[in-house]
Design a protein around this nucleic acid. Structure first.
Lengths: 206, 206
DNA sequence: GTCGCATTTGACCAAACGGTCAAAGTCACG
DNA sequence: CGTGACTTTGACCGTTTGGTCAAATGCGAC
């Protein structure tokens, strides 16, 4: 019934269970691949009961994407224009890598959405996301002009951070298949590697 | 009826039309999101006629993945153990970037498959793909031991090449949304950036 | 031209799907 | 403990989907 966080105890519990279950199912199967029954079962509810809290499958998906967008952008928002350039960039990378490790389902949900042409969130990409990136790209450009990091294309710098960090969440299966040994955690190695990569690219060599 | 390339003229024409149409539809909508009717229509056939050539939707998908896997691995196969290390690696990166530009649908098809846990091609990843990467990682390691490029984790080096190059195919919508101006081709800039990135990481600084 | 085989099609089916609805059950609160 | 609002459910509906089938059509070799 109520799209936002419920006001009663039961509403809160059930909307939470639904969003959790929907995240699980959508991220593993994509929007079309997920069924309302599947989500309802995972949430411990009957299908009509689930549809009592959200008007449609589409609405659950939209709600998830909208909620997650902030989680997704926050690490970049935290990059401080007044901090030390290289430190700020490396800290941003570490935050993104943490996000990939701790919220892989969220990452895969976005990946699914974008790979298929972002049918549900294109406006957000062209609005909120673009605005934030424009702002931070200016900061990066300034740091480069001030000679505090090496000069590279600021937008592609951000793209490369996204692609490298999210790869370990989105393509997790492939990474583990290639590394063998499904038990070993690839993230510590990944962090070393990625930090080295960006340090060598951006640090000044006098 | 016949999964492999048909033997008659009509068989060849129709199987080709089906695989082309299926690539288009599967890459844009994912496996579950694609419908047989959609593929049939895109191929200019009726649904029963399409199912005369392939026994099921699943079979078309499998056939596509199997065919594309080679296209996907060839750029890495071409990396020559006897060539100049940095040149070979940069040439590999250029080939992968070309592949992302020229075959974005193939890239998205794989991305869809892997993000959702690689349900259809996990064995191939653990077999053929892992074997090839193991072999090439040894070459990279040798180059590093010989002091001809800088020392980094060879597997993550390969992962980073994959993630950076495929990002421009798989997340094309996002890249264009952030850059604005849907008309400009981001690939020339991307190539400059990525080549710079890996050169600075790998080249020796005496 | 005609015969055998390949190809194509309209009609059809069962299952799965997203969603509705009226009725039943449950909770909070005076 | 009763009442009104909130919650839950089984039965149901129309549509979409993957796939089947028998019949019709087209094609090429003789």
């Amino acid at each position: 019934m109520n799209q936002t966080a419920g006001t009663t105890r039961i509403q809160r519990r059930n909307t939470a269970a639904i969003t959790e279950a929907a995240l699980e199912v959508f991220s593993a199967n994509g929007f079309r691949g997920a069924t309302v029954d599947q989500i309802a079962k995972a949430a411990g509810l009957s299908k009509p009961n689930l549809l009592y809290y959200f008007p449609s499958k589409e609405a659950i998906h939209q709600h998830l994407l909208a909620t997650l967008m902030d989680t997704w952008l926050d690490p970049l928002r935290e990059m401080d224009p007044e901090g030390d350039p290289l430190e700020e960039i490396l800290a941003y990378i570490r935050r993104k890598l943490e996000a990939s490790r701790d919220f892989p389902r969220e990452s895969r949900l976005f990946a699914n959405e974008i790979v298929q042409g972002a049918p549900h969130i294109l406006p957000t990409l062209e609005g909120e996301l673009k605005d934030l990136v424009d702002e931070k790209a200016k900061v990066l450009s300034r740091w480069m002009e001030e000679g505090r990091i090496q000069r590279v294309h600021p937008y592609h710098l951000i793209f490369s951070i996204w692609s490298l960090t999210q790869h370990y969440a989105d393509f997790d299966v492939q990474v583990r298949a290639v590394l063998g040994s499904g038990d070993t955690d690839p993230f510590p190695e990944a962090e070393d590697y990625v930090i080295t990569l960006f340090t060598r690219m951006l640090a000044l060599k006098p």
